[in-house]
Design a binder for these strands. Structure first.
Length: 897
RNA sequence: GGGCAGUUAGCUCAGUUGGUAGAGCGUCACGCUUACACCGUGAAUGUCAGAGGUUCGAGCCCUCUACUGCCCACCA
């Protein structure tokens, strides 16, 4: 590292290489910024800080493109605010990702020792997790650095570090004491793969082709009478404690209250009427298994039906499964069906496509069952969190996600927060077997039961908390909460939360609820949602598909700036990004283009030039006034777009300005003055070149931090580093000369016209003669820009005539009619007059059509009446110009005879 | 079953408050002009998914349709 810094200090003296080398530049400047402490904001009481809390990546693995995207966006915003002079905090960290990590380590342990986590034991397992963590946390940090993340690493946090563990316990106890955390036996989503409860959000519905089995249950005491039910999970009938029908269903009204005999089991179960049953579906009668189905559980509650649990944790049947005990649920299913059929209870089987709930993390179907868990009462938390969105205290970008958020929040169920896992925040509750009290404490140990004083019958709940419990506290736990720290006081609430829409419910909603509950106000005012990064074909990247594009590979091949610029400019907010390699190559080329533009300018000898910020007062030529005006417009546009989170559009504008205007035109024009024997003229030109480029680099810095920093140091500048250089402010209209812009555009049109004509006449490599007859108001302009025309249009210097009037036009000439001038290119023998006549005829035709159309518009009374005056005026002007041009074209055609 | 997006040049995508469509890549033709071939110059290419409506005027607003994708949902 020290060698790199040494290098960075020498940078200004080194001559620039012919091409930009991202790797060297990136390592050097990142170390420089970091060492200088630019990422750490100073707490300045009088100033309002800008704060963005980074979504903490899971420690489960390496960075992917989703990370690259959020780093690009958040870092761009961070750098922009920093340049605006705000104390800017982008707070990084990592998430312990309870279940995801546990699954990964379980596999690892199995591979290493052929032991399950239970065989290994809690302590040893956790030891292995921590060991693994130590390896991976550093990896994530390094990867972030490669992407240029200017995050404040001095505040780096982890959801399981000591400070955050304490915060979680305090938070749990506050909720517990407020009566918002309670313990209850309810139907939950049980994952037989990872042997824990999971939340509704962790359940993924997968459409599958299964079967719908129709089974008849004999009515007790009515020989030969049956009620037929339909089911997709026949094995659960072993736990049936009733059959339900719709109260409005006349087919069954006389049976309600009667008993059925459960086949295979022989248990007597009642027929109940319940509104939850759709009479139209299936047979209109549904078997009720309160122990293994959410709807059935509710029906069971309403009718006091017993709950029978027939499943072991691994989803094999337990002793309540009778003859099927010990069989896996799917084996049991086959067996049950076979037996039902053998005994004449199976009426029919239909192929049936339906949604099966899967455990997202373990990839197996979940099993609903009744278990005692810790729950958070959500309504008191959700209410104010909804209000914050309704009243605009929290804004969503793009706006449509507000509806996503509110729709979900309005229908929120209580949140099951306990997990039967090892890796996570341990539930800070001690059960007392003596008196049954729940002792909630923030201490690490508990000596005796707070209620009965028992010391030997208390034990801590072995469960851990849902990983999102600690993530939900992230915006304030990272700032030192529950302590009243200076950080918490100064930086809370933050400003922007930037993340993917897939975790609006998991994370964003929880942060808002917790933020309001614990801190009294929402943790941020803007939620910016980005899209998903997809591969070139638009497919989601995944390891199983093998289409993962490693961002660090891209950094290696194209440079960090190129990857960032590509991600930022490939789309619009909230829309998925398709990663394209050609686009990345283009972004890399852009960096190289800037490198060479800077190289060219500095090669002309700008080392001793004093720094001057871009301003119209430094302009001496028309081109100067044009580029400086265009630069000022750019500053205004880019600033406005970033304020609106339109980073892509802002980036594209800077790209177009630098490449198509600054490089293609301004640098080309300036070559004349750089060659001038008059040193003052040369220096004036350098001044503008440096000033405009320096300013544009500042605008580009949030998008491409490395190359801009590097180049900025090669140009005259003020201050230590670009990363902390002030964001250009767009001055008023006094800094733009719109007349100069119009004039320069007239000049461009003539130059383009000549180039075009040369190309069509196949003489583009040669310098040609030209006679230009400008409209009177442009005469002086074209005369003064004589050299520019010669150089950029490829005209023979001695054969360029600029005339106010041409009594007799040359016959053997191509003629061009632009709005600013008529141009003749006497190409003599190279010209086929017939071809030229045809060409003119075509142009005349086009002009006529244009006028005709315009005439149509203008002769429409309601247009003239209703369209705003400027629009009408513009249309008239345009028509007049076209008419005038048409006249010149016709005149020319007549001359040719 | 609800809801939300997308559908613009061969490809990938832009298109600010409605005023007669843009970029990059690719294609074609030229070109080593004292920054850059990761370059320069020029050219070609679009019934803006379809239908209807509002408007003087619609890629942009409204309605419907089609296709694609995503999210939510306790029809067994």
């Amino acid at each position: 590292m020290s060698e790199l810094i040494e290098k960075s200090q020498n940078i200004e003296k080194k001559e620039m290489e012919k091409a930009y080398d991202p790797a060297a530049s990136e390592a050097k400047w990142y170390a420089y910024w970091n060492d200088k402490g630019y990422f750490t904001p100073k707490i300045e009481k009088g100033k309002k800080p800008w704060v963005c809390i980074m979504p903490p990546p899971n420690v489960t693995g390496a960075l992917h493109q989703g990370h690259a995207l959020f780093v690009s966006i958040e870092d761009a915003l961070t750098r922009w605010h920093r340049m605006k002079g705000e104390p800017t905090l982008w707070l990084p960290g990592t998430d312990h990702a309870s279940i995801s990590t546990e699954v990964v380590i379980e596999k690892l342990v199995w591979k290493e020792q052929k032991k399950t986590k239970n065989e290994l034991g809690r302590e040893a397992f956790l030891g292995r997790v921590w060991q693994w963590m130590d390896e991976y946390q550093g990896v994530i940090r390094t990867q972030m650095e490669k992407l240029g993340a200017s995050a404040d690493w001095t505040r780096d946090a982890f959801t399981m570090d000591a400070q955050r563990q304490r915060a979680v316990k305090v938070a749990f106890k506050r909720l517990f004491d407020a009566g918002l955390i309670y313990r209850a036996a309810r139907i939950v989503n049980w994952c037989p793969g990872s042997l824990t409860v999971i939340s509704d959000l962790e359940v993924e519905m997968k459409e599958e082709v299964g079967s719908l089995w129709y089974v008849r249950y004999p009515v007790k005491g009515e020989e030969g009478r049956y009620v037929t039910v339909a089911t997709t999970r026949p094995e659960t009938m072993l736990g049936d404690t009733g059959v339900a029908v719709s109260p409005k269903d006349p087919r069954y009204s006389d049976l309600v209250g009667k008993m059925l005999l459960l086949p295979l089991v022989g248990r007597e179960i009642p027929i109940v009427a319940d509104d939850g049953v759709e009479a139209e579906f299936g047979t209109g009668a549904v078997k009720v298994t309160p122990g293994h189905d959410p709807l059935d559980f509710e029906i069971g509650q309403r009718h006091n039906l017993p709950v029978i649990n027939i499943m072991n944790p691994n989803a094999s049947l337990n002793e309540n499964g009778g003859a099927y005990a010990g069989l896996d649920r799917f084996v049991a299913r086959k067996q049950v069906v076979a037996d039902l059929e053998a005994q004449g209870f199976l009426v029919k089987t239909e192929a049936y496509t339906h949604s099966v709930p899967y455990s997202e993390k373990a990839g197996v179907p979940i099993e609903p069952l009744v278990k005692e868990q810790w729950w958070i009462k959500i309504a008191p938390l959700a209410e104010p969190a909804l209000q914050a969105a309704y009243d605009g205290r929290i804004k969503f970008v793009p706006e449509r996600f507000k509806k996503t958020y509110t729709d979900w929040m309005e229908n929120l169920h209580d949140w099951a927060i306990s997990r039967q896992l090892f890796w996570g925040h341990r539930v800070p509750v001690w059960f007392c077997d003596n008196c049954g009290n729940y002792n909630c404490t923030t201490e690490d140990t508990l000596e005796k039961c707070e209620k009965c004083g028992s010391t030997d019958q208390i034990w801590q709940d072995p469960d851990v908390l849902d990983t999102w419990f600690s993530s939900g506290m992230w915006p304030f736990s990272t700032l030192g909460w529950p302590d009243q720290t200076e950080d918490l006081d100064y930086f809370y609430p933050g400003d922007v939360l930037e993340t993917g829409p897939d975790i609006i419910f998991f994370w964003v909603a929880r942060m808002i609820m917790f933020g309001i509950f614990f801190m009294g106000e929402p943790p941020f005012h803007t939620v910016y949602l980005h899209g998903i990064v997809r591969d070139e074909k638009g497919q989601k990247m995944s390891k199983s598909k093998g289409n993962v594009i490693d961002p660090l590979e891209n950094v290696k091949e194209y440079g960090s700036d190129a990857l960032r610029f590509t991600l930022l400019t490939s789309g619009t907010p909230g829309v998925d990004v398709k990663l394209s390699f050609t686009k990345m190559a283009d972004s890399r080329n852009f960096a190289n283009k800037l490198w060479n533009a800077t190289r060219f300018i500095t090669l002309s000898g700008t080392d001793s030039l004093s720094y001057q910020p871009a301003n119209l007062a430094m302009a001496q030529t028309l081109a100067d006034r044009w580029i400086l005006s265009r630069y000022q417009q750019l500053v205004g546009d880019v600033t406005r777009l970033i304020e609106q989170f339109q980073l892509g559009e802002a980036g594209r504008l800077i790209y177009d300005f630098l490449w198509s205007e600054f490089c293609d035109w301004y640098i080309e024009v300036s070559k004349l003055r750089l060659n001038s024997p008059n040193p003052a003229e040369k220096q004036a030109s350098q001044q503008v070149l440096c000033a405009v480029l320096e300013g544009a680099l500042r605008l580009l810095h949030p998008f491409m931090p490395f190359v801009t920093e590097e180049l900025w140091h090669n140009l005259p500048h003020e201050g230590e580093a670009l990363i902390v250089a002030p964001w250009p402010t767009a001055p008023a209209d006094s800094q733009t000369d719109s007349a100069a812009v119009t004039s320069f555009e007239a000049l461009q049109a003539v130059i383009r016209g000549i180039r075009n004509a040369k190309s069509e006449a196949k003489v583009e490599s040669k310098r040609v003669a030209a006679i230009i007859v400008p409209k009177s108001e442009y005469l002086a302009l074209f005369e003064s820009e004589r050299e520019t025309i010669i150089r950029l249009a490829g005209v023979e210097a001695t054969k360029l005539e600029i005339k106010a009037d041409l009594p007799e036009a040359p016959k053997q000439a191509v003629s061009l009619v632009t709005d600013g001038a008529t141009v003749y290119l006497p190409l003599a023998e190279m010209l086929d007059l017939e071809v030229e006549r045809t060409r003119l005829g075509r142009e005349i035709e086009l002009a006529r059509k244009e006028i005709e159309k315009s005439e149509g518009t203008l002769s429409n009374a309601s247009f003239v009446e209703r369209a705003p005056a400027p629009v009408v005026a513009k249309e008239r002007e345009k028509q007049a110009a076209t008419r005038e041009r048409l006249a010149r074209l016709e005149e020319r055609l007549a001359e040719l005879g």
